[in-house]
Structure formats: structure tokens, C-alpha cells
Amino acid sequence: MSILIDDRTRLLVQGLGRDGAFHAKLMKEYGTRVVAGVHPGRGGSMYEGFPVFDTAAEAVEKTGADCSVLFVPASAAGDAILEAAHAGIELVVAITEGIPVSEMSRVVAEIETMDVRLVGPNCPGLISPGKAKVGIMPGDIFDRGGVGVVSRSGTLTYEVVRSLSKAGMGQSTAVGMGGDPVGGMKFVDYLELFEEDPDTEAVVLVGEIGGSDEEDASRFVAESMSKPVAGFIVGRTAPPGKRMGHAGAIISGGSGTAEAKVAALEAAGIPVADVIDELPDLLRKRTGG
């Protein structure tokens, strides 16, 4: 098992431009069942052995796709998320960076009323090692195993995973949930799924400055989780009021600081690593392994 995606996932790729085409190929090579592409104007053609459609609705109808990954430019991405949701896709993974917050808050308000989950936007996607990869991460750093990883960033997730894999700790599923202020699923949503997943034994939560997601996650872990969780928070050296790359990574008026997040995690009994390489040991202590 794993969460959200596995070897039965039927993936639709929305946007087969330069990035979409490149990563569609890599996802397929990883073993993901890529069943369709959507690129308005290119319906009827084939790419890398899968059919391309003009609309998501047609792609879902003809191929039974249940998950989609977006490589659509920021100005059209909100619309593409809604298109996928209305076509009946159950899990939409939005890689696209730079979508206006106002657009995302409208999209989120609409999909909250629907039976669909959103990962991202502005994220690397997710991977269930050995089963499926829906995103842009390098597949070879991941190993199959029992650690669930959920993170707000991209390359930092890879760094954490590399450290876990090196210590012999494979992953059930690793998710980069995205660095924007308004997006889809939050830490709590992923933690809930990891708690239910029989193959996940422990979870690593990688947070950063800005917002209150880590604080909410701490509360959830203290109240509702039986599995061990270890944390890592970046942005301890970030100055207030400055956006640190991710639109969501900003300390505003004393809230969203790394100190507050570390304190919240620790108060919930979650050990927090000072440096990434401490994470495997912290997990080992918590799992007694």
C-alpha cells in the first residue's frame, strides 16, 4: 500500500508542452501507467504510446484516467484544475508555479464542494516508490519502504529522502505539497492518510516558515496519530517580511516563524531535527528500530 497513488493509478497528463512532454516520458519510464494526455488542439494524436485528447472529459471517458498531473502555464492552470475536477478526476496534481492567489482561492472554493483532491500547486508532485511517480522528482533516489514523507518544498524533499534512503529507510509515499499560500491538501490531510495506510510505519514532516499548517499538523499528531512522526523546519535564518522563494514562505508580523513551528511540533511530542541527517536517527528512536 501507499497513499493516493500506486500501480493501479491511471494517469492523465494535462499540458504536453516542453515540460509536460519531458516528464510524461520520465513518469512512464518509471513505471507509472500514463493512459492519456490532454492538449487542446492536439486531440487524436499519440505521444509516447498514449492517446492525446482535446479535453479532459474525453480523456477520462475513453481511458478511465483517475489522476491527472498539470504542466499547464500559470495563466491557464486554474482553469485546467477545474476542467480535470469536472471531468471526474479524483486526484489532481498541479506542478505549475506562479498561479495568482485570488485564482487559487476561487478554484479551491469550487473543488471543496466536489469529490476531488488537489496536490499543489507549485509542487514537485508525489511518488510511491516502485509503484508510480506523478511529478518531476528524480525517481532513483527513492526506495520502497515504510516512511511517509510530506513536505512543502521540492529539492529539500529530495535531500530528506536521500538521507532516509542512505540510512536504509525506504518510503511508502513521498509528497511535495507545494509552496503557495493557497493550495490543495494540507499536512493534516496527508497525515490522516498516512495514519490509515497499513504500509506506512512512520512519517517525516518537512515544514517551512509562513502560515500555520505545521501548527495545525502538530495538533493533529498529538490528538489523532498513533504512528511516530519526526519533523524538520527550514527558514530559521529568514528575515521577517521577505518572501523566501516560495510565495508562501514569508514571516509576516511575527507569525509563521520557524521558532513557533518547532515549538508547536515539540509540544506535540514530535522530535525536530536541527540538520537533515539527524532525521533517520530521530525516527529510529521513535520506532525503536
Partner: peptide
């Protein structure tokens, strides 16, 4: 994406999260 601070070790990193982790590690 660049934000200046006051220290002496210049950092050049790929990815915002890893860039923050790098600054934190130096500190």
C-alpha cells in the same frame, strides 16, 4: 530568487526549501 542578509558565506542553491535549509545549516 534573491534576498540579501548580513553574513559572509554567499549561498547559491537550487530550490527555495533547500536554499533555506542551507542558510540554516550554515548558521
Amino acid at each position: 530568487s534573491y534576498v540579501r542578509l548580513d553574513g559572509s558565506v554567499g549561498c547559491m542553491v537550487n530550490g527555495a526549501g533547500l536554499a533555506m535549509a542551507t542558510m540554516d545549516l550554515i548558521k
